[in-house]
Design a protein around this nucleic acid. Structure first.
Length: 211
DNA sequence: AATCCTTGCAACCGCCAATAC
DNA sequence: AGTATTGGCGGTTGCAAGGAT
């Protein structure tokens, strides 16, 4: 009475760690209904969780074909390359690493790689100028600017470091008309091509002196 | 042995875009 | 066309475990 119920539609959902029973319920429900309509799926599964929580649990933990455990050197190498290329676009980076989730890569970056790279940068700033200047993505560009930004950053990296100055890359750079970034051909070659080119070169923090 | 500190990771939050109605 | 709902993303937080003191 006095303690009237406010907002009858507001519902208290369970938060925090998932139990194995909850995992099982969610997995079964997804097997029957599919991984969509997360809010209704949650109630169909008999879970007192919100849809978002269910989706996250599925995507980051329960989904089949997820790799668990340590990152291989190859994966680490790939993450560093892709982060240089894409910045904090974790879902895009995850798309290049089968079995890894964006959350996992983000965590790995924040706990392992960012420190590693900071150390490398410190070392290089103390020493010679023969190390890569890593371009950073400080601000999230608009969608329309995305492609151009990637190109500009990649060009900066390749030119400043000497890495990836293959004939093919030079050719691609020439193709880019600085006055016309909206060119659809440029948009088409974008991330995939640069990724492929970059991937051909071994990762090296120490770059040979260019005479 | 107890306490404090650091680390790593799972999960939550807020925002935005896409889609449904 | 406008509004509500859903899905997806990146940033951040909370907590358990292990290490240091």
């Amino acid at each position: 009475m006095a303690s009237e119920k406010q907002e009858p539609t507001a519902r208290e959902f369970v938060k925090g760690k998932w139990t194995t029973q909850e995992d099982e319920k969610l997995t079964e429900a997804i097997a029957v209904h599919g991984a969509k309509k997360w809010n209704s799926l949650a109630s169909k599964a008999g879970l007192n969780r919100n849809g978002k929580s269910c989706r996250l649990r599925w995507v980051n933990y329960l989904r089949p074909n997820l790799k668990r455990g340590d990152m291989s050197d190859q994966e680490e190498d790939m993450i560093i390359r892709l982060h240089k290329l894409l910045g904090n676009r974790w879902s895009l980076i995850a798309g290049r690493l089968p079995g890894r989730t964006d959350n996992e890569i983000k965590n790995y970056w924040n706990t392992h790689l960012s420190k590693k790279i900071n150390q490398k940068e410190k070392q290089s700033s103390n020493g010679s100028n023969s190390t890569i200047q890593i371009p950073t993505v400080d601000e999230k560009p608009s969608v329309a600017d995305d492609d151009r930004k990637v190109h500009v950053e990649m060009k900066q990296e390749c030119l400043s470091s000497g890495v990836g100055t293959s004939a093919a890359l030079i050719k691609k750079e020439v193709m880019i008309d600085p006055e016309d970034y909206s060119n659809t051909n440029i948009n088409n070659i974008d991330v995939d091509d640069f990724f492929n080119l970059l991937h051909k070169e071994p990762l090296s923090w120490e770059v040979p002196q260019i005479p």
